[in-house]
Design a protein around this nucleic acid. Structure first.
Lengths: 187, 187
DNA sequence: TAATATATTGAATATACATTCAATGAAATG
DNA sequence: CATTTCATTGAATGTATATTCAATATATTA
């Protein structure tokens, strides 16, 4: 393994450790020392890999923004089926690859709470809300989903998922929900 | 107004300001100075009213724990109707008395994230989960709610509410959901 | 009014923590 | 092997911020 690859590995290890801690304890309550200790690595060395704590956060948010992105529903699939399967994918992926799911929670937190401005903007730009609104409007026309403000419905759907995932990220007792339950909110 | 009452008023003003800021920005990212500025009051005076920032948090968590507490459903009311009305009450109360609803969010955050141990324990002890589990089990026997692990269902319900409320607390664009939507998760 | 208690302030202090740095070890390169 | 480059450390530094404190203003009491 070349030195460059080694460095890349190490960076990833730091990123994954920081992601977990940021989600479990929150960004401001996670000290550089905590991350270093968990990796493990000396505190000083952290700054060989990342310019600053904020830089570390930005890198994570960039990863999160690069993710699946477009969640548009194909015309020939009913929106309820699509949303159920999308949720199912996220949840089952989360079992094997907890980071995907930590990422989901982090992105929501960055959008909402007192985080560096730059990070918030980037996180906001990568939001599944807009495509979901049109899916819901289609579902309403087809009579699958009930009436109501489509924007509010879409938000409820994703923020409900957000709340459940936040709990799953910190509470090992919390079992994954059946995706159907959550999509039922829309019917 | 006696001096003691005056002091009590002032304490409440500080508590309400801190509650709002803790929910909007998070506990660790809210500086004593921020709270003092928002009240408004000098930084030093804060310590005339509260021993420490942690003491302030504890006081809030104590208020949150003292709240409605028992949310048991009367025998003659169907559980779905009861949960819908409970949610409706919380949501409409939130319109006039935002603090009730900030409190809801704070309690959830304290339970989950890196907050002082003492606060977390107290917040955990005041959790609507247990009564909701029995309500759901009753609903399942009566065939109103669908099958599934009752504990997981109860958690999903409340954490979904938590996620939605967190958003409402920080995003003025977010409109209140119809309580029926959320209870539909259980049916 | 005088004396006492409480409220208030802003500056001083202490502490926690992000960041820097000089020194050392280990690997790559020639 | 000699040299250079990179990885690593732990202690030093600087900054942000919780907390304390001495001084002053305001209210209460006798």
């Amino acid at each position: 393994m070349t030195r460059k690859e080694q460095k890349e590995e190490r960076r990833k290890a730091i990123l994954m450790t920081a992601l977990k801690l940021f989600v479990e304890r929150g960004y401001h309550d996670t000290k550089i020392t905590d991350i270093a200790e968990a990796v493990p690595m000396s505190t000083g060395l952290m700054f060989h890999y990342f310019e600053s704590k904020e830089d570390l956060l930005m890198e994570l948010v960039r990863m999160g923004s690069a993710g699946p992105g477009s969640v548009a529903c194909p015309e020939d699939v009913p929106p309820d089926v699509y949303l159920t399967s999308l949720l199912g994918q996220i949840l089952s992926y989360a079992k094997e690859q907890p980071w995907v799911f930590y990422m989901f929670v982090l992105m929501g937190q960055v959008r909402r709470t007192g985080m560096p401005e730059e990070a918030r903007k980037l996180a906001e730009s990568a939001d599944a809300l807009v495509p979901t609104v049109s899916m819901i409007e289609r579902g309403q026309k087809e009579g699958i989903f009930h009436k109501g403000d489509s924007d509010t419905l879409a938000r409820c759907f994703w923020y409900a998922v957000q709340g459940i995932m936040e709990q799953m990220a910190t509470d090992p007792e919390m079992k994954a929900p059946d995706p159907e339950w959550i999509v039922a909110m829309l019917k």
